[in-house]
Design a protein around this nucleic acid. Structure first.
Lengths: 338, 338
DNA sequence: GCTGGCACTCAACGATACCGAGTGCCAAGG
DNA sequence: CCTTGGCACTCGGTATCGTTGAGTGCCAGC
């Protein structure tokens, strides 16, 4: 599709534009070692690249900047074996050695860590359909008519639901209900439609039913993917235009947009989505890099980076890949090889 | 300290500046109804107000803008009976009628709601020293050497700690430890140094000890106040200068700064802290408005707003006051009067 | 087919002038 | 003595206008 020289020139333009954020002229491309042609030749080629939609000119007599298509070519031509540099690798190692603790905190910490590692905004999405087995179910009375249902999943996640009863709860009844739930639900897959037979005590059954109902998927608004965002402020550093900053931050607060965005990209089988490919106008100057993470071999969520289209793709790809893998490992067992 | 006319003029300047973000000239102040003096008189008075440090001039031949001291006077002179307007009141009502669910989600939703209500960034801090009684303690085995300790507090909050054992856990041992913890700790105040006597089984005691240790204050990094921030993007809309936006967003991400800031303001017995009063340079163009909320009559956290110094103090004060009160009520029982 | 050369374009920058909002001060008036 | 209209003055903001220079497109020659 693109001959070698065009590809090399395009790569050079993208790389320089990523570094400088300035339109790239033919002269500086011609200076790139390994490409021994004159600036005039480069100009001709760049003209062709522009006709083919890989480059654009902000105005006549300015250098070229990559289009989404240009970035796409650049990203696709990256060697898939991106490596982190030594210091970053060290950071990853220390972070995951030190990081303990419970699932949500881990995800939240990871989002912050990843943001610091890449210097872009990081997103960690925990899939709602955590297909984890239930390790424990318990009902706790908080107030006369308020009962908290606490479910511990094998992943270490905790699901909790507040139930409000129609009448004052009897400790004994709740205790019995709790026991019934535990004996029937432990070992089941959370989120599937759980069902258990009636006992002989209607009072108990009522509480049990209320608890089961609250645990059904979609029943409670809280049953949606959890999103952890780290380093949103870095998006403010990535752009100069106040308008862009506002738009991007606005999107970052609409978590459902982010979630569907991330899902979408993964569904399309991509790792990177660039500018317009995101299909969200306010993010037309942004790209995202995503990678799913797995717990015990099961997909459990996604790690991603949101940055400007002119981000450092190679390093970001490597960072996201490494972090998603390590995160999965860290969550799969208490400790892996450490 | 300030005679009536000076006070009226100062108030007029602050109000107009809050609306327009433009330096206020003597002419527009003179037009304010109720203040029937000429612009020349206003000029004289404004000169005096400037000498006294209530107003400042960006440059000669521009209008005046309030200093922190000016805002302070303005805020202190507000009638403490600020009321929300009807539509906002309606919003509050619907939000708290609809809002259910478990503590953390409630706090997080509240922060977002409050941000939307006021159009500034909202902060909800849940005090770490939740002096709530323990309602339930349970150990759950997640992996051979990993045990999750789940503590349910009377407030509905859930504390969870991951324990890593030196050797593979025996279900029986963990069960026994869980039972011992439950029987000794339920009813105690969480966060106090909990202690319980040895049993006859050393294995069990080891697990119990590990669990108790992980629950001690300060022991785990997760033992810190939780912060929920809503509407951070609105700070980007509140300022024009990109530099300011970046600084403010940067601070918003350093949650510990926010927490100590909020604590500090409350400790000084204030409801509002303005610009330099915050003692954080990057926030010199910001003010915060805070109010503690109480669960069952006990202080349990803080609700706050971070906005530009030129924020609508009256409405914001009212909003923060109402929301903190309603939040406390909503958390105090499952349902209060509804 | 590449390259040096050249005319051309146009954003960015700086100098200059102008405008007008706003001030400080003063002298006259109640 | 305080207030007020008047007036000269200041100075940031905006518009105008060259100038500059990076960068282009094209062409003729190697």
């Amino acid at each position: 599709m693109l001959d070698d020289r065009k590809a090399a020139i395009l790569r050079a333009v993208v790389e320089e534009y990523i570094e400088t954020a300035q339109p790239v002229g033919s002269a500086s491309v011609a200076r790139v070692p390994g490409l021994s042609v004159s600036s005039a030749t480069v100009r001709n080629e760049m003209g062709a690249l522009e006709r083919d939609g890989y480059l654009a000119q902000p105005h006549t007599s300015a250098g070229r900047i990559p289009t989404d298509k240009g970035y796409r070519f650049f990203v696709d031509s990256l060697t898939p074996t991106g490596r982190l540099d030594a210091s970053q690798n060290q950071q990853v190692r220390t972070f995951f050695n030190r990081a303990h603790g419970e699932l949500e905190r881990m995800l939240s910490d990871t989002s912050r860590f990843l943001a610091g590692l890449t210097d872009y905004a990081a997103v960690v999405v925990r899939d709602a359909e955590d297909p984890a087995r239930i390790r424990s179910v318990q009902l706790v009375v908080l107030a006369p008519r308020v009962v908290l249902a606490v479910v511990v999943l094998a992943s270490g996640a905790i699901e909790k639901r507040t139930l409000e009863l129609a009448e004052d709860a009897d400790e004994m009844v709740v205790g019995a209900a709790s026991a019934r739930l535990a004996s029937h639900l432990v070992g089941e897959i959370f989120g599937t439609s759980l069902r258990l037979p009636d006992s002989e005590v209607p009072d108990v059954d009522r509480v049990v039913a209320a608890a089961v109902r609250s645990l059904l998927p979609g029943e409670e608004p809280e049953y949606q993917p959890q999103v952890f965002i780290g380093g949103a402020a870095r998006m403010a550093a990535a752009f100069d235009a106040v308008g862009t900053i506002r738009q991007v931050l606005g999107i970052l607060e609409q978590q459902y947009v982010l979630v569907s965005l991330v899902k979408d990209v993964l569904d399309r089988g991509l790792t990177v989505a660039i500018g317009g490919e995101l299909g969200v106008q306010p993010l037309s100057d942004c790209s995202i890099v995503v990678a799913p993470y797995e717990i015990e071999g099961e997909p459990a969520g996604t790690v991603g980076i949101l940055g400007p289209t002119r981000m450092h793709y190679e390093q970001t790809l490597a960072a996201v890949a490494v972090v998603s893998r390590r995160l999965g490992q860290a969550l799969s067992k208490g400790s892996e090889e450490r």
